[in-house]
Design a protein around this nucleic acid. Sequence first.
DNA 1: AGCGTGACGTATA
DNA 2: TTATACGCCACGC
Length: 112
Amino acid sequence: LKSDFYRRVYAVVACIPEGKATSYGAIARFLGSAKSARLVGTALKHSIGHAPIPAHRVVNSQGLLTGKHAFETPDTMACLLKAEGLELENDQILDWSQYFWDPAEHLNPLDF
DNA sequence: AGCGTGACGTATA
DNA sequence: TTATACGCCACGC
């Protein structure tokens, strides 16, 4: 409840189950800051090489892998997701609603 | 103490 | 349906 924004983002991302993914906006809304989706992306960018979290499980609101360029190679993110069972095509998650994991439906806001 | 900066999202045309 | 426009705001200079 008192920690900084980045740290709260990392805590939520750490809870995303393998085989699922969520969006920047969904995380921002869950944290009570609906208009801060961009900050979520910025936080994840800075997490590379620091926080040991599954950053590849966060995509944009349409299921597109907009953060792929922040990884070691441009296809690292897609490979990780495919390895976890998601179906992709051109950096776009197919049947997005099937894989979408909403923090608000599985986590308690009071814990963050 | 400003100010530029985005791994976004939504509203328009 | 595909583009472009713009609000957003924590962080680091």
